[in-house]
């Protein structure tokens, strides 16, 4: 059977297993570690396969037998339900992609700039600005003032920027990037360029950035995921159906279900809603189409990511 969801603490112990192989990792250790990673990686992917199976299960079978790995009857009905709202889905896809791409570019640039500056000993105010960024990780003014800034100062309501700007910078990523710059871009490399009279900006673009691809790729990956999965900003700022991203279509269903659960007394009057709430299979189909694109594009994305890591690895 498949590995059930019981706690397992095997992974860390394995590190000790390979004591006796001086240079390369021994065959045996390699095999053991491979197996462990494979099992864990499979347990990570498995739910997604499961979700796909459920989305292809006939609704009446789900109703009767519950979830199962090999459903009695397969059905594409759930996807037909989605086909019926294809124009909205397509529009939402476009929005999500646009937001993710634009947002990732903006956020990687802003974060890398900031992190690089505070990683350099030449920058006199680096400590202050590090603290300035760090402080925001712990304290926030809460939702309402944030909403006011976005709607009344920046006038972001019902624009695509409402989905991009609020997530553009993240102090956590800045601090990770700062450490990365400190470790991977040592001053010694930059010294010679400085002696040649290159400006700091030129050094940054021509030497630092190419050296930092692994770090940049990591940050880019994180922000891509963040943008792709965001729905809360859409809830706050987007009323125009043409600007609703994919994830918030999904969350609307969830929120409605939770709403029904908490308002049991209402049953009489909310009959109208119940009809619009998709059944289990349709919900899973929704999960599939909201997650699949990024899930399948990630391995391609990862190629560059790994490339970035390797380039970073073979540097002088």
């Amino acid at each position: 059977m498949l590995k059930p969801a019981v706690p397992s603490k095997k992974v860390p112990k394995a590190v000790k297993k390979k004591n006796y192989n001086p240079h390369q990792l021994g065959k045996k250790a390699n095999a053991i570690l491979n197996t462990m990673l494979a099992v864990f990686a499979f347990s990570c992917v498995f739910p997604f396969l499961y979700v796909i199976i459920i989305s292809l299960t006939d609704e009446s079978v789900l109703e009767k037998n519950g979830f199962s790995l090999l459903p009695e009857t397969w059905s594409f009905e759930a996807y037909q339900f989605l086909w019926a709202i294809k124009s909205q889905l397509l529009q939402s896809y476009m929005i999500t992609i646009a937001v993710t791409v634009l947002g990732t570019i903006i956020s990687v640039f802003t974060i890398a700039f900031y992190a690089y500056a505070i990683s350099r000993p030449q920058f006199k105010f680096r400590k202050q600005f590090t603290f300035f960024a760090f402080f925001t990780m712990l304290f926030n003014g809460g939702l309402v003032p944030f909403y006011i800034v976005a709607t009344q100062v920046l006038h972001l309501r019902d624009t695509i920027w409402a989905l991009i700007l609020p997530m553009a910078v993240n102090a956590f990523y800045i601090l990770i990037m700062r450490t990365f710059f400190q470790r991977s871009v040592p001053e010694s490399i930059l010294e010679s360029a400085r002696i040649d009279g290159a400006s700091e900006l030129r050094i940054y673009f021509q030497i630092v950035l190419p050296l930092s691809l692994p770090g940049l790729a990591t940050i880019a990956l994180f922000s891509t995921l963040g943008y792709w999965n965001d729905w809360f900003n859409a809830l706050l700022f987007i009323d125009n159906p043409a600007l609703v991203p994919l994830q918030s279509l999904l969350m609307k269903i969830e929120n409605t279900l939770e709403f029904i659960r908490q308002n049991t007394l209402l049953t009489g009057s909310v009959k109208g809603i119940m009809q619009s709430v998709p059944k289990d299979a349709a919900k899973m189909a929704m999960v599939v189409i909201a997650t699949l694109p990024i899930a399948v594009s990630y391995p391609f994305f990862q190629r560059y990511f790994i490339q970035g890591l390797t380039i970073g690895g073979v540097k002088e």
Binding site: A133, N140, G141, F146
Partner: peptide
Amino acid sequence: WFLLFSYLPMFG
């Protein structure tokens, strides 16, 4: 960005 989205709302 920090001023607008983090520090300003802190008054709240």
